[in-house]
Amino acid sequence: MMSLDFLVGFTIFMLALIMVVSMVPGLLAGLESSEIDYDAVAYRTGVILVEDPGWPVYPPWEMKTEAYKDEIERMGLAVSKETPNILLSTKVDKFFNDSFFTEDDYRDRAIFGDIPYSYSFLFRSGSEVKQVGDAPPSGHGYIRRVVKIKEPGAAVIDTSFVPQYKATSAPSADQEFIVRLNFSQLLDPSVDPAYRIDPRTEPVNVTITDFDAFLNMTEPSTTNATLKNVTFWKMDPTRPSPRFTRIPFTYNTMDPGLYTLSLDGNLKSLAPPGGVEVFDNISLVLKPAATSLFTLDQNSILDIRFNFDDDPVRTHITGIHHYDYNPTNVTRPDLKPGVLEVAIW
């Protein structure tokens, strides 16, 4: 009996309700959550990546293999905690290896949030671009950090070293060329970590270009020499009566995770059976993963010995090349400017 009046009143109520409900999303639109939390998370992630070397520090997290991935607590890219914004290239390479790290690894070890945030990390230096994560949608949290990247140095032994390392008379049948790394000198704490040569975190590069310039020219037909093997020796000067001992190592297995030895462009093991004839160049990259197996401390001296074995002698290369801060011995690349962008949503 009152249906009409009730209908009118209830319709007005419903209309008002619908209007209010339709206003609510507009109310939230101005407050997209990026401005609430995402920016703060992006900022925090940026600080962790750029100003922290990560954990564990030594042996560094970037050396952990698949089996020990759980030991990585935090991924930071800085060279040391004293040098914010200076990133280590080996850490950057590992971090952007998204076949090694899963999405959860990035969330648990770099972003540290309760919510499973989506992320995008982008590193750009010159024309080099590295990226993990998806393209960010609009309304993401964002931070951009300007950084410099430190790359490993390399000892390049070219023709300019011929007077220094080429013996004038034929040495004994067992020829040896040594590259010596004195850790107490390299790891001297007075050297700024941003410019330090640290074989524990960075690869050691030894390249002999123009190997033919060191050949024994008294025998005109000589075009190569036989590299018998490359061995590692260490000495601990703090011990009584220090002497060099040969480091036990899997010399005859090729493992790109530990080292690469390239002879004239062909990858070989450190002790190739029967030796390999080298014509033009030798290039050895000793990865920090291998150096960590050598149980070296900050006083050790590490020798990389190239042994040549020919009778009659075919190469005159000899002597000790010091892998140190002398710019003629080791060329250290300049720090390169780059930018790290973090987007969180």
């Binding site: 009046d5 009118v8 009143g9 209830f10 007005i12 309700l17 209010v20 109310l27």
Partner: peptide, 30 residues
Amino acid sequence: VNDRGQLYTMEGVAAGIIMLLTAYIVISTT
């Protein structure tokens, strides 16, 4: 049709005004 019916209409209007006013205040404050 009597006076009783008008009350539903008035109350509907009152409820609507309350809700709209609140929504307006909420939007302007945020």
